[in-house]
Simulated scan of single mutants.
Amino acid sequence: MAVVAGGTGHRIAVADVVRQLEAVLESRGFSAPRAATCARLFAEASVDGVSSHGLNRFPRFIGQVDRGIVRHDREPAAVASFAAWERWDGQLGPGNLNALASTQRAMALAQTHGLGLVALANTNHWMRGGSYGWHAAERGMALIAWTNTLPNMPPWGGTSPRLGNNPLVVAVPHGDAPVVLDMAMSQFSYGRMETHASRGEALPQPGGFDSEGRLTSDPAAILQSQRTLPMGSWKGAGLALVLDLLAAMLSDGRATVDIGARPEESGVSQVFIAIDVARANGPTRLVQRVLDDLMTDIPVDPTQPVRHPGEQVRRARAENLREGVPVDVDVWRTIGELLR
């Protein structure tokens, strides 16, 4: 297996990463096609610079498979249809495979109706939500998708986790340069805080409160207190609440309060809305005009040009496809030890 020394660690050829993950998944009973897709989704997250929800998350995912939390052989089942809106049961299958299937189904509905909505109950963590936005946008469709989570964020003015940080994805197609927003309702995702904590690094700005209620940039202190800061303060807390309500309502699934009663996070609710924007007049010209205007702004830091959601991903993808996937040596060793 080709391992190349990198500036901040080690790099491994993408094909080698995918093969290793596939082997681990097949050793857990995944069929070859499902193992290939699941491995690709994990690898692509790291290729795109989101290792917290890619390779770094893979050992935890396998642990849930081993404990029966994630049921490797389960696929989404249709529950109800209301024309352009469908309800599906994820049957506690692998979250990334369920989310990809739901995205593809929403896109198929959008081809017929102009807009398609799939509400998915009883599924698992979707790993990197942006994967599904990129999947739709690269095929010419817009996507709005979100998931609820276990309670991991206090309501505004509160001190204990009652809300999920309920990640939201909004993707707008634009040729090979789509605009893809992928964000949690907390200032920083738990995955990013865990990555910073493992490296002993502070967050670039305050992301939550320590156990004494002091605002802090120390990710370990925030992880311990579970008092992460909602993005936009009360606005993020409010948005987290309504996303949770809609996910549970539309899917007839669990809300965050119900997920928190389970031994560990599982059985979450998700929504995928695909829009066939090709039916609109000149969407490509509109997107380019808006982006051109953004790029004329004067940056605060001359060394950091103005950018829009998706630009950083494209740069990371190009570099990592060329030079190999950056890996944490300890994480890669753990993945190797998972092979049965």
Rank of each mutant, 00 (worst) to 15 (best):
G63N: 10
Q104H: 03
F58M: 02
S131T: 06
H125S: 01
I275F: 10
A101N: 01
S189L: 07
V169A: 07
P151E: 07
V65L: 04
V65R: 07
E264A: 11
P326G: 04
S81H: 14
T216C: 09
R307K: 12
S266Y: 07
E337Q: 13
I275E: 04
M183R: 15
I12H: 03
P154C: 08
A84C: 11
R28S: 01
S189Q: 07
A197V: 02
V4A: 02
Q104N: 09
P230F: 00
E323K: 12
A15G: 12
G175V: 08
G260I: 05
V277D: 03
T195F: 12
H10D: 15
A36L: 10
P309L: 05
P167T: 00
L229N: 00
S46L: 08
R315G: 09
A84R: 05
L120N: 08
G133S: 01
V18C: 06
G310H: 05
E138L: 13
A136P: 04
H10A: 15
C38S: 12
R128F: 08
T228V: 10
A184S: 14
A5Q: 14
V287W: 01
P219E: 00
R57M: 11
L143N: 06
S46D: 03
S217G: 11
A184W: 05
T296W: 07
V70T: 12
N96G: 13
E265W: 06
S251H: 03
L229R: 00
G232W: 05
G90S: 09
T296Y: 05
S27I: 00
L245C: 12
H135E: 10
D301A: 06
Y132L: 08
L286S: 11
V79T: 15
V329A: 15
I335F: 00
A137S: 08
A45C: 05
L150T: 12
D328T: 07
A83N: 13
D330F: 13
